[in-house]
Design a protein around this nucleic acid. Structure first.
Lengths: 328, 328
DNA sequence: TTTAGCACTTTTACTTGACAAGTGCCAAAG
DNA sequence: CTTTGGCACTTGTCAAGTAAAAGTGCTAAA
């Protein structure tokens, strides 16, 4: 356990470094605290032995280590209530009735991204949690038609397909069957049901059933596993830790691989989670702060991605506010 | 007009610089051409006076100027046929029947982006060219429903909206009216028609018409003006000219502003166009090579974005091939 | 336990010199 | 008139060296 003074020093260093990413020396700290720089140096040495601080070279000031940030988040930070101005901006979005929840969330994350200069992410529910609500087919011309799939959570996806020498009637028959027999099925099980329940039936009395079956089969198996919405991707570039291209490349590539992002929301519980550096799968130099939300039928995860020296106090406060407002 | 030798020298310099971005000296050139380095130096001086070459400092080798690239593209380059291997990769995509055109294009641009390390863009037709085909409404629960808009070109967009205390019947009535009265209208005129043709009617015999009208009005006015699909955005980061963050920031931000991209396809005719450096609106250090395509009802633009020292011969050949295959 | 003081380390910003690459121009050769 | 060899000159790059600034660790005294 840290002494009171050690806590004070660690907190000071972390916050100063978050505000301005240059190593913090004993002199600066001693001014903020009632003792000499020598005393601070001793304490800093202690904190370094505990693994909470690091030096960039033998005679540099100190920088928080990953464990240091962890300790800060777990024990030292005081979550900030949002200021009135920021709150107002978000209220503008929340006030807007008529917007569906997912649009409200995306819009407010846009606002947050601009206001904090961090990247944000919304993850929808996964495909096994989405039930097929309805399939619609809309002919575009002789050969082309649009297939639209709607899930119970309002996730809509469409695909244009080309069917040659197939009559619209036959297609509509098939769609009718699908809607009658397998709506209510989790999306990722539709493929199977299509094969074992629909295919045998249409085999008998739908002409060109092979072609139609294939088309629908692909539409469903190509269905996005999880809606992932990244807002303010370029904000990452504002952070000084991403001034070299290799770093940027890594992070951007990771953001594009949805699997990585999905790994974000593996935890079950409902709290705000902070994943610092190695604790996340994206990059050692970033922190992910996230929380699940759930409102009625709708659920998902929102996350804020920034450098390790993120403004934890503000971000956590912000997410608390978001969560509260979404679920209310 | 350039002498034959000057042309040869310019071509050599451009191509060498494209392959490897270091200034080209007279010695290297003289080896490839049948004369001494001194002669080459004289000619290079001449080409510099003409504004086709530049020096990075008084005693460096030469680098093509923007005009130099322009001249190269207009007069010197010999468009390359695709090699068998690349052709095969693309054929794999084109062969796939059942895929709608837009999917074929996106998939093949993905292939191209990987194979060339450039960013690619597909622009769909603009909203004034898209006619409303059909509106569908699918209820999700008591309060939420999904509105789906389909255009004649198969552009589908949906929006979830929340309507409190409105019966589904009323909504369906309205949708029926829209489909009967204004399908066939260019999307960006739907708002107006909604106001002057639908609103007065539903005003009379639809309860809650105000709320319903507003919801639909917004769904249509929020309709994306033009589908923009950027493929391989991160490939930009592979190019040495984008090794500094400011550059990256600028280009990425521009890519996100769709207006800029739309300005890409201002030209009317049907040829392959090359916009080098200042000739495009994105960034002085990049080149955009683009072409319109048109197949039946469907049309749009595909573009390849890379550094100014782009492999013009290959890219143009590739676009020719793409265009041909799309339109066939 | 705290603090003043000092030797020591490292980074950063400049300078210096040597070398390589390349130019422009002149005078001679073709 | 064109081409070429030769040479003086310019600039960038790299490595080494220097001086100043920031900060540490340790010791000895308060």
């Amino acid at each position: 356990m840290l002494s009171e003074r050690q806590s004070k020093i660690l907190k000071l260093i972390v916050e100063r470094y978050i505000q301005d990413p240059i190593p913090v020396g004993s002199k600066v700290v001693s001014k903020q605290i009632n003792c000499s720089s020598a005393t601070v140096r001793n304490e800093m040495g202690e904190l370094e032995k505990l693994g909470l601080l690091e030096k960039t070279h033998t005679s540099s000031g100190r920088v928080p280590s990953e464990a240091g940030y962890r300790y800060y988040v777990d024990h030292l930070m005081e979550i900030k209530k949002m200021n009135a101005e920021d709150m107002l901006k978000l209220q503008m979005v929340f006030r807007n009735q008529q917007l569906a929840l997912s649009d409200v969330i995306t819009k407010s994350l846009q606002v947050i991204s601009d206001m904090m200069n961090y990247t944000t992410v919304v993850l929808g529910s996964k495909s096994h949690e989405n039930l097929l609500k309805q399939v619609e087919v809309i002919p575009l011309d002789d050969e082309n038609l649009t297939v639209i799939i709607v899930t119970d959570r309002g996730h809509v996806e469409h695909k244009n397909i080309m069917l040659k020498d197939v009559s619209l009637e036959e297609v509509k028959k098939t769609v009718g069957l699908i809607n009658n027999l397998i709506s209510g099925t989790p999306i990722d099980e539709v493929g199977k049901k299509l094969e074992f329940e629909i295919k045998p039936i249409i085999g008998n009395y739908v002409k060109q059933h092979e072609q139609i079956y294939n088309a629908f089969y692909h539409v469903f198996t190509d269905f996005t596993n999880q809606e992932v919405n990244i807002v303010g991707r370029n904000k990452m570039l504002e952070q000084p830790e991403f001034s070299n291209v290799e770093k940027i490349k890594n992070v951007f590539n990771k953001l594009d691989e949805n699997e990585i992002l999905s790994s974000i929301e593996e935890d079950d519980d409902n709290n705000i989670k902070v994943y610092i550096g190695k604790e996340n799968n994206i990059d050692d130099d970033i922190t992910v702060i996230q929380t699940k939300f759930k409102k009625g039928n709708d659920e998902g995860t929102i996350a804020i991605i920034g450098p390790k020296r993120m403004e934890y106090e503000r971000v956590v406060g912000l997410l608390e506010y978001m969560k509260e407002n979404i679920e209310r």
